[in-house]
């Protein structure tokens, strides 16, 4: 149903693909430069693609009145928002992960590192959805994409910096501090996001 409801998912997916390819082309094939900036390219394009979809998830349902009915139901709003964020991650970030091997070829990333890189993005990317939905709920009264973007980006810094650091250092030990911090960052946002999001929605109504 989610897939049917949004052309924004196609836009995000297409954006991710072309942004990454253009990123690779912009270095004119200079391998040294590409090796340096490729991980940043993957993370930045993933981040912007997720940002493109944020305005559609919570705001659309608030505007058509569905949120009123979520509040009427026996389900805790926290669980509803948690599930919505999981669906957002599955429909937005997961397809991008699937085409990431092809993007990595374009970015001339060593294919031996493929599995490690995918695991790093897999660990870090849920944080983007959970932070995004949280900010989306906090800005419920204002349907401005500009506002969501400007508030969300600073909250993406920890994920972005840790993600880029881990992607740049794939030869680190599996249990190195950077990997653990990236995992903890995701775990932290997954834990707090549904509660803050639900509180923000309820606060908006009161």
């Amino acid at each position: 149903m989610v897939l049917r409801s949004g052309s924004h998912l196609i836009i995000a997916f297409t954006f991710f693909f072309f942004f990454s390819v253009l990123f690779a082309l912009s270095t004119l094939g200079t391998e040294t430069l590409l090796n340096l900036i490729a991980p940043s390219g993957i993370w930045v394009s993933l981040l912007i693609s997720v940002l493109l979809t944020l305005n559609k998830i919570i705001h659309q349902e608030y505007e058509n009145g569905s949120t009123d009915f979520y509040l009427l139901s026996d389900f805790p709003l926290e669980i509803i928002l948690f599930l919505k964020t999981i669906i957002h991650w599955i429909t937005v970030s997961l397809p991008m992960l699937l085409i990431m091997p092809f993007i990595m070829i374009a970015l001339q990333i060593d294919l031996e590192k493929l599995l490690v890189l995918l695991t790093i993005v897999l660990i870090g990317s849920p944080a983007l959805s959970f932070v995004g939905i949280m900010i989306s709920c906090l800005t419920l009264s204002n349907n401005s994409s500009f506002l969501i973007t400007t508030i969300t980006i600073p909250f993406y810094f920890p994920t972005l910096l840790l993600g880029i650091y881990c992607t740049n250092n794939t030869d680190l030990d599996n249990m190195s501090l950077a990997y653990i911090l990236l995992g903890l960052n995701t775990l932290f946002t997954i834990t707090i996001s549904p509660f803050i999001s639900a509180y923000a929605v309820k606060l908006h109504y009161s």
């Binding site: 149903m1 049917r4 409801s5 949004g6 505007e63 058509n64 009145g65 569905s66 009123d68 009915f69």
Partner: peptide, 10 residues
């Protein structure tokens, strides 16, 4: 209410 709470794509 005034809002129908329905999804236009379904």
């Amino acid at each position: 209410g005034h809002k129908n709470a329905l999804n236009e794509n379904f």
